[in-house]
């Protein structure tokens, strides 16, 4: 694999991780974590592990994102009492 492409992917990976931690809105954090997961899947595929990358893309970017969004809908930021 070209090292330039992997460098770009790693830069976007670090950017997504830092922005996901620093974001104030939790929904933005969830979306950025999904993007993080997807970039990780691309890196796995670029390293030759197609099966692992496939699993990461499906579970990390699909099901986990949906479950986190559900948790955000079920909870609120302010306490009620």
């Amino acid at each position: 694999m070209f090292w330039e492409l992997e460098l770009v992917l790693f830069v976007f990976l670090a950017l997504a991780a830092i922005l996901a931690i620093e974001a104030k809105d939790l929904l933005v954090s969830v979306v950025l974590m999904t993007a993080f997961s997807f970039i990780t899947a691309l890196l796995y595929i670029s390293m030759g592990a197609v099966d692992v990358g496939f699993t990461e893309a499906v579970v990390g970017a699909g099901v986990t994102g949906i479950l986190f969004v559900l948790v955000l809908f079920k909870t609120s930021r302010e306490t009620k009492d």
């Binding site: 099966d51 496939f54 499906v58 699909g62 099901v63 949906i66």
Partner: peptide, 11 residues
């Protein structure tokens, strides 16, 4: 992987 894709379609 296929099962997770089916679950994603339903979810």
């Amino acid at each position: 992987q296929g099962g997770a894709l089916l679950a994603a379609a339903i979810l």
